[in-house]
């Protein structure tokens, strides 16, 4: 009986260890490259043949005001560029669930030319979260730490995870931005949802 219990316990432990290893491997994401100032940067140049510059500029502004309105603020814009500030929330994963562990502030720039545009996120600053008295995760300070700052030996592992998390979130942001600029939201909004008629068959 005790042997069976031991075997069952062993199975659970193996399962937990496998999940933990998987979670750990998933967390080991690649880091962002550095720019010529020595700052981490997410940078992309995108070719667009069919959309004119003015439409792209409007769509970029809409992206900030609609899709990312809770986490981005438009700072300035010209005929060919937009500057904005934003925040990415970094998560800590525990097996299959987790919680926010901090946020990263960044500067966003997008510039347009004929049939192409480029955008980048840089000047990342990390602010750790702490759990408040109501069980919610909130910023523990208002002063961010630049991601380029070398962490102490005690926190090197955690910092590496944060850098990996920023890379994942910046890449996701980049994908969202490109997708938004490639599609016309007005057309999508006008298009009615398909309905199925059961009257004729």
């Amino acid at each position: 009986m005790a042997y069976r219990k031991l075997l069952r316990m062993k199975k659970y432990l193996t399962f937990i260890m496998l999940l933990t290893t998987f979670a750990r491997l998933s967390a080991q994401q690649k880091q962002l490259p550095l720019d010529d100032r020595g700052k981490y940067i997410y940078y992309e140049v995108v070719e667009v043949k069919a959309i004119n510059k003015d439409s792209l500029l409007k769509r970029a502004a809409d992206f900030i005001h609609q899709d990312y309105k809770k986490s981005m603020n438009l700072e300035s814009s010209t005929d060919t560029s937009i500057l904005a500030k934003g925040t990415l929330v970094i998560d800590k994963t525990l097996l299959v669930a987790g919680h926010p562990s901090g946020e990263v502030k960044y500067n966003f720039t997008v510039e347009f030319r004929s049939e192409k545009y480029r955008f980048w996120l840089t000047d990342f600053e990390y602010i750790p979260y702490q759990r408040d008295r109501y069980g919610n995760f909130v910023a523990s300070t208002n002063i961010g730490t630049p991601l380029e700052k070398t962490p102490s030996k005690l926190n090197a592992g955690q910092w590496k995870d944060i850098l990996g998390g920023v890379s994942v979130k910046a890449t996701k942001f980049g994908e969202d931005f490109k997708k938004f600029l490639a599609s016309s939201r007005i057309e999508t909004a006008k298009k009615k949802a398909e309905t199925i008629s059961t009257k004729k068959w």
Partner: peptide
């Protein structure tokens, strides 16, 4: 999460 816009369960 695949059906409705919802945040994941937070465990801390």
């Amino acid at each position: 999460a695949q059906e409705t816009p919802t945040s994941p369960l937070e465990i801390s």
